[in-house]
Write a protein that binds this DNA or RNA. Structure first.
Lengths: 336, 336
DNA sequence: TTGAAAGCGCTAACAA
DNA sequence: TTGTTAGCGCTTTCAA
């Protein structure tokens, strides 16, 4: 087994008490300079590492935060995680990353697991399947600091960091219209997600503003957010077999956009569909795609960063926080 | 602050001792059925969660493992992480993921941090910058179980899980030759990395086998493994400005391959280079690329899975393990 | 300036 | 079958 030196070991070796060693290591004013020097140098020599479990037990906090996202392979989330870590690590916190793979059951398990790991707070973007947030409400009520980002629930009152989904969707859809598309379909994740609702709204607003009507047949949902390829395939096949086939699609999510491109590539191989795509994506290889696609980029890194700052604010607050904010960050349109 | 019920709370509420409650919760044979029922039901009701810090302190293990990779955004690593988690979680372990972003300093910091977090073991793929493994040797000597995967050091004797890098490189290079390329360059990460050495060997072997000579001018290294775009740009510009310009490139890494495609796209925009690419990549969107590229796929998920199994074997071993294996998994060539 | 002792939540040897 | 107690590593109050 892997054993580290403890304060006790140091105390014994130097003929001091554990409390003196403890204080010396924390550079307490009560300890004389020579004693401090002695302890510090010895600790250095034997590579003393404080036991975080003992500390957590004592201080009733773990200096760790839990992250719940759908997938780290999703570029939006990997960028957000980088933002989260940049703040968390610099403030002495460890991030424990968990993935739901868009499953409600896994989300519940992960949250439960993180809570039982006694994280000091939770950073979460809910899964595509999540409709019921009882598992989060419970923890929130019991005082666990939670900050939501990206996909946020309505009913839990805490800090929320989101992208300007409506604006991004509006821009992307408007772009499709401005480049000549008249019949624009919309492919989205679960209909109940905050991001889906907002992006749908941006889409319909853009159509309305440009005098186009909203065709319900053009709006398709994939409840698994692109995790199930066939779901996307079916949706797109339905779209192209409509009598009045769409000439463009606005896609509301990263993974969904990738899936959509794959399916369209396949369909185009059989018979060109003439459908152009614009969609949300934080991928860094979109420039290499052919056919190309216009993308809506979310400031994922900044969102992760901001969410973590707000979370640490909650965690380290002296008094209970009752005022919460919702920050909305702007997206960027990359025309291709 | 977020406070959970403790065994003490339960004991007090039910008029029992903490040890009785503890035993009842662990379903000990010493406890009577009615008492067990009483305790279990009450624990359920108040949503009792054991404090992992107390447990870790007591049992001198944390039921967590540390992961060190260069980037979660790299598809190879995100897939490996999925493999790691599938085993770790099912065996009750938490995975703490850290990223080096190919920096030696960050690797040292992460490893140090994980050790101080008292993880039970370490799963690591060393960074592109890492030449010196003293930070790992030290922990390894002191008994911390470590399993290396993907990029492994020579000098530390423990389990290692790698892909058949030589074979994959050989196949990819041979493919380029078989499709007519005669002057094949090689773009790689840091020259000292195990994967670089093996992939270079596969490349040269393929050339030799097909009667082509190895041109040192055709071999370029990017010490930051594609983290610095300009590094790749410079290497490629040098290649195309050679008097005897290569007609193909075999690229030895995921991020590097993406970078290479970007640079080539740009260069082709100015003046077509006629260079075809084959490279290591686990990306799932290569089908959408144009120009297309042939790729070498590593069984990342299986590698993560296997590495974790070996690590848990070490962690849970009753007696010190002295026999270590190196497992080599085959790659797959996707011709495009 | 230093030390003794209690306690964070939990388990387990020992006692009853 | 249940309870008492010590101890995991650390900090901190109180005492010296």
């Amino acid at each position: 087994m892997f054993e580290s030196f403890t304060i006790k070991d140091i105390a014994k070796a130097l003929g001091l008490s554990t409390s003196t060693v403890s204080r010396a290591l924390r550079d307490s004013y009560e300890i004389s300079a020579p004693t401090k020097k002695l302890v510090m140098e010895y600790a250095q020599k034997v590579n003393y590492l404080p036991n975080p479990n003992a500390l957590s037990l004592k201080e009733r906090r773990s200096k760790s935060i839990g992250i719940v996202v759908s997938e780290v392979a999703n570029h939006y989330f990997s960028q957000a995680i980088n933002g989260i870590e940049s703040i968390a690590n610099s403030r002495g916190y460890t991030a424990i990353i968990t993935q739901t793979h868009e499953s409600f059951e896994r989300e519940k398990k992960n949250v439960q697991h993180l809570a039982s790991r006694s994280v000091d707070g939770l950073l979460i973007s809910i899964s595509a399947e999540t409709n019921d947030t009882a598992h989060l409400e419970d923890l929130h009520k019991r005082g666990l600091p939670i900050v939501f980002f990206d996909r946020v629930p309505e009913n839990i009152n805490t800090h929320k960091i989101i992208a300007n989904n409506t604006g991004g969707a509006f821009e992307a859809t408007s772009h499709l219209i401005s480049t000549g598309s008249k019949k624009i379909a919309h492919l989205s994740s679960s209909a109940h997600l905050s991001i889906s609702i907002e992006r749908l709204f941006g889409y319909t607003e853009a159509l309305r503003k440009h005098g186009l009507s909203v065709n319900p047949e053009y709006i398709k949902n994939c409840p698994h957010g692109g995790m199930i390829f066939e779901e996307v395939e079916v949706a797109l096949k339905e779209l192209i077999s409509l009598r009045d086939k769409p000439d463009a699609i606005f896609v509301a999510g990263d993974r969904l956009t990738m899936c959509c491109m794959h399916v369209l590539k396949e369909l185009n191989r059989i018979k060109p569909t003439g459908i152009v795509v614009a969609g949300f994506s934080n991928s860094d290889v979109l420039d290499l795609f052919n056919p190309s696609l216009t993308s809506v980029f979310q400031p994922a890194f900044e969102m992760g960063l901001l969410a973590t700052e707000k979370l640490l604010e909650l965690i380290e607050a002296k008094y209970p926080v009752t005022e919460f904010e919702q920050k909305v960050l702007n997206t960027s349109l990359f025309v291709r």
